[in-house]
Design a protein around this nucleic acid. Structure first.
Lengths: 198, 198
DNA sequence: GTTACCGAGTTAAAAAAGCAACCCGGTAAC
DNA sequence: GTTACCGGGTTGCTTTTTTAACTCGGTAAC
């Protein structure tokens, strides 16, 4: 089921992780703009060209965690069991994320995760680039949802809903509440928001 | 004074160490002949050709620790202060090794060191290759000692003495005594043995 | 007595990483 | 207002590593 795990693949994954981890921990400690990519490369013990071979821009050093979820919505729609409506599949998937306290739902109170979200949301260049990612996500979801304007609008609405929900959840947790405590509200919010999509 | 420490050099050193460490620890645990170079490479997380680029033969995976002392005797002779006789320089150097409990003198009771020596001495192919190293050592020492048969004989005698002394010391320690305890005898033996060289 | 496998080493080609030098836009120094 | 540096990102070249397939000697199977 998982990729062939040769030496090459293992070491590439490790290098990638080393770079990403070094980056995030430096950014969290000193702030995105006060850390240069040279610093990151040095901390990860790789060269600058290598760093850029793994991550196209400085922002991606942070955002790859979202990038890993690229196209997830589209996939959920495409792989739904026949008989299930797209919206139901998406709602269930999001609900699953909440129950697993998946960081992308905003419903996660691990200190690192919270700090990470604050970093993303309060750094303009990061927030900006993140919306670019979501636009691409929107396009593939639109395709999965059907031709024409109809699909595009649906896609935009779904992603907007997810974005808002995640933001609301994160805000409550940033205010000091625990994920477990917020969970019921998050589920209720999700039901209401997805309900509006009909 | 020390080599430029770029990324490349650092990683090469690390790879080399990883291979050597994996090798020695596997050999100590299972025996030299029951561990294949494939096992070593796998444990060190490198490929077989890489392993062989760092160490020309399987034996060298163990013996590089001796190889690091290659030519040491010759260097001691060449770099002695003028006015000092070669033999005195060599005797003093060996004496220094005893005082530092240098593993090459056999006078070292760290469990790993003792086990390592047992490994070398009780594995025929290793013991065999080790004497090959000592022959090369002998040649360069002979050159440093002067032309002709005279130098060669001297060289052979010095190295034979060191070999015997190391072996005797190791034997006592293998019998359970501590290095500190054996030290005086080792010094006495050394004095006597080097004395015979006159 | 082949046939098949194992372990030490090697080879060639391709991927990946390092290095040094560069471009380009910004901003601080003088 | 040049000049110099800094940080993001790129380029070309070299070195290192992986991969897979190979040689060669030994030895177990049948």
């Amino acid at each position: 089921m998982n990729e062939p795990t040769g030496l090459r693949a293992r070491k590439k994954a490790r290098t990638r992780d080393a770079i990403a981890d070094a980056a995030v921990s430096l950014f969290l400690e000193h702030g995105f703009d006060r850390v240069s990519v040279n610093d990151v490369a040095a901390a990860a013990e790789t060269s600058k060209p290598t760093l850029f071979r793994y991550f196209p821009t400085k922002e991606d050093l942070v955002l790859h965690r979202f990038a890993d979820h690229q196209g997830e919505a589209a996939r959920v729609v495409r792989e739904r069991r026949s008989g299930t409506k797209p919206m139901t599949a998406l709602r269930r998937h999001f609900r699953g994320g909440l129950d697993r306290y998946d960081p992308v739902t905003g419903l996660n109170d691990h200190p690192e995760v919270v700090a990470f979200h604050r970093l993303v949301f309060t750094t303009p260049s990061l927030a900006g680039r993140l919306t670019r990612y979501q636009l691409e996500d929107e396009e593939v979801l639109a395709e999965a949802l059907g031709e024409g304007v109809r699909g595009r609008v649906r896609a935009a609405q779904v992603l907007a809903v997810q974005r808002v929900l995640a933001r609301v959840n994160w805000q409550k947790i940033a205010d000091g509440r625990t994920a477990r405590d917020v969970h019921p509200e998050a589920v209720a919010d999700a039901d209401e928001a997805f309900g509006l999509l009909r």
